[in-house]
């Protein structure tokens, strides 16, 4: 069983600030981290490997520093890592991103065929959740998004059985392998990394490819050039008007509030 997990390096959006004057992001001092969903995807891949045997590889597209998220994945238990890095990948929207990752996956599959691809539900910076289904389409394998549980992986009969979250519950889905799943955070808790993983990670050097290392790539479909979407403008939403404040003692405030609500929303309180 060869499982490949796509992992993205993202700024820690919990800390990111927007400069209100220029509407640009202030990335100073904001650490780059492994997209939290992708951490859960690596963990799930490692758990599947521990059950049915095989190998977990991770793949990232990003600047050379994205090596860090590959190391982090090795810590969690991945066996191998690939980084595709090239200026020609830069400025990609989700269509161009899935095209680049797809080409790298094809090359990885040449070395060792892929049975399962895992992605995070979404990346916390771009936050579209569109890359995973895009890769599946390009590889022509079935996608299952929003997976909260992997119930069974059957290597012999080549299928996977998973729970997919929907608005009012979940679906139990069986998909033929190879397929691609995107995972929710609740799928697992990331275990503490054993010492040997940490040591391996610290020394780990991923395989690094540029565009020229990939085969049969149509350059016009990469990066900014290959992106149908463009950001037109950015602006900060106008702050809303201030509330009407109700004054008086607590008892008076409450009385006035209740009569205001009953008057304004009388349709809710009809006879």
């Amino acid at each position: 069983m060869h499982i490949v997990v796509c992992v993205k390096q993202v700024p820690d959006t919990k800390i990111i600030k927007v400069n209100p004057k220029t509407n640009t992001l202030d990335r100073r001092g904001v650490p780059a981290i492994l997209n939290p969903y992708d951490g859960h995807a690596v963990e799930e891949a490692v758990r599947i490997k521990n059950k049915v045997g095989g190998k977990v590889s991770v793949l990232s597209m990003g600047p050379p520093q994205a090596t860090e998220v590959i190391k982090k994945s090795i810590e969690i238990g991945a066996d191998a890592g690939y980084l595709i890095t090239d200026r020609r990948f830069a400025g990609a929207d989700t269509l161009a991103t899935s095209y680049a990752l797809y080409n790298a996956l094809k090359k990885i599959a040449k070395e060792e065929p892929i049975d399962l691809v895992l992605c995070g539900l979404h990346a916390i910076d771009g936050d579209t959740g569109q890359v995973g289904p895009g890769i599946a389409r390009r590889l022509n394998i079935p996608p299952v998004t929003k997976v909260i549980k992997v119930e069974e992986v059957n290597v012999e009969k080549k299928y996977i059985k998973v729970h997919r979250k929907i608005e009012d519950g979940y679906e139990v889905i069986q998909a033929q392998l190879p397929c691609l799943i995107t995972v929710e955070k609740e799928i697992n808790e990331i275990s503490y990394s054993p010492l040997p993983n940490m040591i391996k990670a610290a020394r780990y050097k991923p395989v690094i490819w540029s565009v020229d290392d990939l085969e049969g790539v149509d350059i016009s479909q990469l990066g900014l050039k290959g992106s149908p979407t463009v950001v037109g403008k950015m602006w900060a939403p106008k702050p809303p008007e201030k509330a009407k404040m109700i004054e008086g003692s607590s008892a008076e405030q409450v009385k006035q509030l209740v009569s205001t609500i009953l008057a304004e929303k009388s349709e809710l309180f009809q006879q």
Partner: peptide
Amino acid sequence: ATSNGKDLASAIATDLSTGLTAD
């Protein structure tokens, strides 16, 4: 932008090679 709406839109955008703005 529901479970199925997002899933479907992402697949179609790739299938038709067009842009998709999220959420």
